[in-house]
Design a protein around this nucleic acid. Structure first.
Lengths: 205, 205
DNA sequence: CGCCTAAGTTAGTAATCAATTACTATCTTT
DNA sequence: AAAGATAGTAATTGATTACTAACTTAGGCG
């Protein structure tokens, strides 16, 4: 058996978050106990409470981890792309790719969103969504100024449906129990979205 | 105190399901205990187990209740509408209206979908989704035959994104904590979807 | 090399929850 | 109206859970 592994606190916290996200890939967040998490990282249950004041703090850390990374990935993907619609597509694909790499993410975030009362974690999720949304709106307004969007388009609805588009893919993946396969279905889904917002008879691509 | 209320078994089961759906409107399904359900319907916790063999069976009954009604509503809405795209719109709005009337439904279904292992309830959800999807595909194929869809459209993706569109609305509603307001945002969302699938420069409405 | 602290273990505790049991009240039927 | 069936109560059980506390070990630094 592997001898007791001594890790510095911040690294242990990192491992904990990774374990949680990994476990959410094939287990229900609500039934995920501290014992499960500990066992999965080869440590006893009590050890977790050396690094987190309570279970809620573990969820919070996991959500923060996701929020940070998904925003970074999406921002990096759109970086340097002039055409706003192309930037949106890059964001979309980057987002989906991230989910494909971390299949536990949708279940984890959805699980947090189910809590009606605002917990620290759910507040983080909501904050993530808002930042995401405002970034989308920014790109959409840019696209409108360049005459790429069809007239009369409701930008607010368009931003919402961008996320809904991802969400639709996620939902199908959860039903099919194949979150990794989301990447393959992404291009067709974005194609649909683009036709929904773009000015008709457009010439691009 | 209200004297003990005697109800026939099937009616008590009906009330139980209604209580569950109602409670899911402002509580997390995972934290919904049999005690909560019983208290909400003015009955002791043990009474529930006169009518359901276990808690799982309660979830199953709730999902069956929803599946039956949502399919009936959606079918009724599309009934008699000749134009397939108009039928799709009617289905969309009927679906969203149903959710608006029963704000607990999204949380309940999402909660069931989170279970990775197929439970009886989650199998019902998946079955519901499949029937829904095949109905959508049927309408989409009809629309294609009538030349209403843009060439090259991936019908499978289009069916998926119809559901995704609803899901996107639901998600925004959960974030905004205003599930009832979903009805107001629905038309713009469907408009977006229609433009995504319809043949360009179309003349209709 | 020895000390001291951070990290981990073992063994609990109190609370909660689904489910059961023994009993009681109410409806139905003849 | 009596009797049997149905529906509900109150109390309890066993299992599970998050969290804690007392003890033990690892590892870096002077």
């Amino acid at each position: 058996m592997p001898q007791r592994q001594h890790l510095p606190a911040d690294e242990r916290r990192e491992r904990t978050v990774e374990a949680v996200i990994e476990l959410c890939g094939h287990e229900e967040p609500a039934t995920l106990t501290t014992g499960c998490i500990a066992r999965h990282m080869g440590v006893t249950q009590g050890a977790l409470f050396r690094h987190f004041p309570n279970k809620e703090a573990i969820w919070e850390a996991a959500v923060a981890w996701i929020a940070e990374r998904v925003m970074a990935r999406v921002a990096a993907a759109a970086e340097g792309i002039e055409d706003p619609l192309a930037a949106l597509e890059a964001m979309f694909l980057a987002h989906v790719a991230f989910i494909g790499e971390h299949p536990g993410v949708p279940r984890l975030l959805m699980g947090q969103l189910q809590y009606p009362r605002p917990t620290a974690a759910s507040r983080l999720v909501r904050g993530l969504m808002e930042r995401y949304r405002s970034r989308l709106l920014h790109l959409l307004e840019q696209a409108r100024r360049q005459g790429q969007l069809r007239p009369g388009l409701d930008l607010d609805a368009a931003a919402g449906q961008f996320i809904g588009c991802v969400q639709g893919l996620v939902l199908q993946s959860l039903i099919a129990d194949d979150v990794a396969g989301i990447v393959d279905r992404a291009p067709a889904a974005f194609d649909l979205y683009r036709h929904g917002i773009r000015v008709e008879a457009g010439g691009g691509a």
